[in-house]
Design a protein around this nucleic acid. Sequence first.
DNA 1: GCCGTTTTCGGCCCGACTGTTTTCAGTCG
Length: 585
Amino acid sequence: MEKADIVDILEEIAELLELKGENAFKVRAYSGGARALETLDEDLGTVIAEERLGDIKGIGKALVEKITALHETGELEYFDKLKASVPPGMIEMLEIPGLGPKKIKKVHDELGVESIDALAAACREDKIAGLAGFGQKTQEKILAGIANREAYAARHRWADAEAVSLPILEGLRKLKQVERAEAAGSLRRKKETVGDLDFLVASTEPAPIMEWFTTQAGIAEVTAHGETKSSIRLEGGMQADLRVVPPAQFFYALHHFTGSKEHNIRMRARALERGLSLSEWGLFPEDTRAGKDNAPKPSERDPEPIDGEQELFKKLELAYIPPELREDRGELEAAEKDKLPKLVEPEDIRGVFHNHTTASDGRATLEEMVQAAQELGFDYLGIADHSKASFQANGLDADRLLKQCEAIKALNETKQFKTFVFTGSEVDILSDGSLDFPDEVLKQLDCVVASIHAGMTNDEAAMTKRLVAALENEHVTMLGHMTGRLLLKREGYPVNVAKVIDAALANGKIIELNANPWRLDMDWRHWHKAAERGLLTSINPDAHAPDQLAFYKNGVYAARKGWLEARHVFNTRSLPEVKKYLGVK
DNA sequence: GCCGTTTTCGGCCCGACTGTTTTCAGTCG
């Protein structure tokens, strides 16, 4: 069984244990183990064979046995038995807001409810409200939750979430009671998808801010409205939370609500090691933490004022960790040794490759694309229209391609634009791993991006073989969108990423970080380790229109999540350096 | 179930909001 499937099973075990009322820390051990395994950048089979699985933090003796059994036999008796003991409908019920494992267990034990349909029926028959700990409101909330289940559970691509957040942030900042306002959560961490929007405000006067937030235009529903915290659901389905904190606590709270949860857990454990207790309220001596005898309420204490998150990290003897890195993927260890990367910035990008024109399926002409690139200040622009196998995208045959090359060279000659244009192609990788153009054609191009667009239903071994074969072609410059995924719409085809990275390194090839907000492929989780091994990326917008050249910023954010520095990114290089690399005069 | 510069046992992050209670459990992030 492949790694991704094992990760899914570990996560399912965690949910099942939760529903059974198991020890919460045991539940966390399984979901933590799933995360640790997901993060593994090496071939799982190799790690198992070399008995190194147990060296991974979060994977102990029990998980080593279970993961090994799943990988080698595809079966796990423990999982089968556990699964058989819990009706499948109960796992689904976890998606209903307000329903957690305890309540689900209760309706199951008391009323025999085993499915969402049965739960809805029990609500309509007024059976739920009578249970101890339940009431009329809970019953209504469950019914509404069932009806809106899909909207509530939905995630959103980062760029979409940012677009919704900007006017809200602007509205908050305009209020006179607001001293500071920031977006936090996964949006601030630049995660590729965002569940809900988190806003944080510093103010001594929360009431009017809450009032504005819960009555602004475009609200479908106010789901919570407290003194310092409110939640709304917007008409587009996105949910947003607002917290208002006293100014002295702002940066503690900003850190807290930026997360991730796993990063926060590590930070708090680190505080405890130093006799301190960390929360959104501040950093206090541990013996006065909430819950201890005579502990004051956190809201009635004054934290030491700090001017920024930097100071919080400093108090815990850590270098400043940028939000993008706060995923508990080694950032605390690196910050402790002052070994954090100097992350690539949007301003570092000097030009972009992999862009389309009306010659294939782009919406703008060559000149219009170059004009837009020049306006963005790019020194160079790489054109890569589709090849003939991408018939649906009006792919170019060799004649049309070579004519386009002539046109590009002629355009460069005119010096009409400051931006230099590289010829190229996004050449299809065919089912047998060969390319859609012969070598005689490819060798005439400045930059060859090789991508898969068809035959995506083969298994992992076959897809990996195709990608590796493409990387072995001497005329290929870089691999395009490695997995073909479309975020929240289509899973990528299965790929053994470790083997493809090995092949790119062995052949001295670049792997693209496709910056289209739907793709962000290859995934940021693989970049840290790959770049350490010397892999070079190119952050490519895959633009099909002039305004899409700006997608490169999304790619930079993903690259930052992947710990990349400018030196790891090909298109931070100057035009002469790029020309030299590509062998262009 | 995982983990260990005090520990191989006994911890494991912390607080707001809701709905149900009348001091709190459950859920959420």
